[in-house]
């Protein structure tokens, strides 16, 4: 920096005093050679591929609009109270089973990394089982566990038949949550392992205990690695909840099916459900972006801009050549 300014030709002045302002001779662009104005290369291939893609898109949309589908049924039922209840229950299932999954995942990850061979092999076994079997099969297993346990008897607190205890909601939550815990465990483990060992040493050298080191130093840093895949898991979970229609729990997909059968517009209701799932996953993606941004603090010199900041930067840069404004 200083070297450049010195060569800029102001040997008399101290260049440090000029930092921030425009040092002498830089207020106008130097009268150098003329800027290049050349004819850009034409990329004909791009025009062709764009045309082909648009043609296919138009043809598909046209086919759907001409198909044997009663599109009016979709807006008619879009805000039907059963659909709204279904949306609510889908969200509830997603949130609750992700909570079970994340809590279980953290516990399993810590168990996996523990020095105790028994806890770490139990965690390994759990992950092996729940990742190795389809979630639909697990849901049916939970639903029918009454064949093994006829009663549930938590002596002074609660006693009932298994079939009364294992409601469709509980089946759904356990099935989805416990399966999710196995996946979250691997995500959390990767996150914990990604934190530099020097961090643990520094915390220990300051006299922090294992658990405090984990809570204050390791987990907050692991979150940066854990959050992006967890966001994907939430979005996956939202879609996977449609499976619990099979164990009699009424959520969005099941209500859509019911309405479809009663109103004689089954396919239309599938489109309706798809639209609702899309809306929900889109909202979740935006939320994920902000959470990732929060946990990125300290890891990069500058936080990535929010979408709104990007829009504003783009508006200000309109009319200027690209690259002149660093967004």
């Amino acid at each position: 920096m200083n070297d450049i300014e010195k060569t800029a030709g102001d040997p008399g002045e101290n260049p440090r005093e000029n930092l921030g302002e425009n040092p002498g001779g830089y207020s106008t662009p130097p009268a150098g050679p003329e800027a290049i104005k050349a004819i850009p290369v034409r990329h004909y291939g791009r025009y062709v591929s764009a045309l082909v893609a648009i043609a296919i898109l138009v043809a598909t949309v046209y086919a759907f609009s001409q198909g044997d589908i009663n599109w009016h049924a979709v807006p008619d039922y879009f805000f039907d109270h059963r659909i709204i209840t279904g949306v609510y229950k889908t969200l509830l299932l997603t949130v609750l089973s992700m909570l079970i999954g994340i809590t279980g995942g953290i516990v399993l990850a810590i168990m996996r990394l523990s020095k105790n061979p028994v806890t770490s092999s139990i965690a390994w076994f759990y992950i092996w089982f729940f990742r190795g079997t389809p979630v639909l099969v697990q849901l049916f297993l939970w639903f029918n566990l009454g064949l093994v346990f006829h009663y549930i008897n938590l002596m002074p607190i609660y006693k009932d038949y298994w079939s009364n205890f294992m409601t469709p909601l509980l089946t759904a939550l356990l099935g989805l949550g416990l399966n999710e815990a196995a996946y979250m465990a691997e995500i959390c483990r990767a996150g914990l392992l990604a934190v530099d060992e020097g961090q643990t040493e520094a915390a220990h050298a300051l006299g922090m205990s294992h658990s405090r080191t984990l809570r204050r130093v390791i987990i907050p840093q692991a979150m940066r690695v854990i959050v992006p895949p967890t966001g994907n898991e939430v979005i996956n979970m939202l879609k996977t909840t449609s499976l619990v229609a099979a164990v009699q729990y009424p959520e969005l997909f099941r209500y859509a099916q019911d309405i479809g059968q009663n109103s004689g517009a089954p396919v239309e209701m599938y489109f309706l459900a798809a639209a609702w799932y899309l809306i929900m996953t889109s909202v979740l993606s935006v939320g994920q972006y902000y959470i990732e941004r929060y946990y990125a603090r300290g890891s990069s010199r500058q936080l990535p801009p929010t979408p709104w900041q990007k829009v504003r930067a783009n508006m200000f840069s309109l009319g200027r050549p690209k690259g002149a404004v660093s967004a």
Partner: peptide, 26 residues
């Protein structure tokens, strides 16, 4: 015990070659 080791470490400051500051804190 770990807690006793931790207690003794409070009185000993350590500075590392690679600083090991906590990156998520100012």
């Amino acid at each position: 015990k770990d807690s006793e080791v931790a207690r003794k470490r409070r009185d000993i400051g350590m500075v590392f070659q690679r600083f090991n500051l906590f990156p998520h804190m100012t």
